[in-house]
């Protein structure tokens, strides 16, 4: 099933074109890397998918519908910045997710928190950056959603935490869901991805499976990316 479908999708901020006539279709059951340098339009695409912003031209559809109430109910979004109240304890955060999202699987969240020795009494602001990032990811992945939009989930955490985060993604996505991971840390996510989408200056440069890229170029996706985007 087509979980995300863009046709001629364009977003301008004043005179700046952040996304430029993008055609892209992504299917369920896949983990897709949204890859591009800073300012290439990755976050803009994700924000359009969550209806935080609206297209200037063209269309974007989530599971066959325009972004809105219905699609928000099936979209689990991890923003690239802090979005949870810093003075809340884990227990209240769980309550927040329980109240907001019908598909929140609290047991899943509790199991993951326990495996990391994160107590429900812990306050977000007293956690290290890596632990905070893990808590956010746990909350995001504990929803039984149809589309997961993870904006830079591994930026700014150490390699061990990265590993944990990626394994959590593999373990928790369901086979009828689409996971989109935006990042510029390609070497770290490469093995986890089905497909890679390269964008530059708001334009689609490449959309292929990771193994096709490796087969055809004789290089890793990371190396290929460095060549395509050489400054």
């Amino acid at each position: 099933m087509n979980m995300l479908e863009c046709h001629g999708l364009t977003k301008c901020y004043g005179k700046v074109t952040a996304l430029d006539n993008l055609d892209l279709t992504l299917e369920s059951g896949r983990i897709v890397g949204l890859l591009g340098p800073n300012g290439s339009g990755k976050t803009t695409l994700i924000k359009l998918a969550t209806r935080l912003i609206q297209p200037t031209k063209g269309s974007i559809m989530i599971a066959g519908q325009l972004p809105g109430h219905a699609t928000k109910a099936i979209t689990s979004y991890l923003p690239d910045r802090e979005y949870l109240p810093n003075d809340l304890r884990v227990k209240s955060l769980l309550g927040l997710y329980r109240d907001f999202y019908r598909d929140f699987n609290e047991k899943k969240a509790l199991d993951m928190l326990e495996s990391l020795d994160i107590s429900e009494r812990m306050e977000l602001k007293k956690m290290s950056k890596g632990t905070k990032e893990k808590v956010r990811l746990i909350l995001t992945m504990s929803r039984d959603a149809k589309i997961y939009l993870l904006d830079e989930p591994i930026a700014g955490v150490d390699p061990a935490a990265r590993d944990y985060i990626l394994r959590t993604i593999i373990q928790n996505y369901s086979e009828d869901a689409l996971v989109i991971i935006s990042t510029h840390l390609i070497a770290d996510v490469e093995a986890v991805l089905d497909e890679a989408v390269f964008i530059r200056q708001g334009k689609l440069i490449l959309h292929q499976t990771v193994d096709e890229i490796r087969q055809e170029t004789g290089k890793s996706v990371d190396e290929h990316f460095r060549e395509v985007f050489r400054c």
């Binding site: 059951g29 896949r30 983990i31 590993d163 990626l166 394994r167 593999i170 373990q171 093995a191 986890v192 991805l193 089905d194 990771v210 193994d211």
Partner: peptide, 13 residues
């Protein structure tokens, strides 16, 4: 899925 987790790779792969 367990093998995929262990290897740190995509389950489809």
């Amino acid at each position: 899925r367990d093998l995929a987790m262990e290897a740190g790779v995509n389950p489809n792969t």
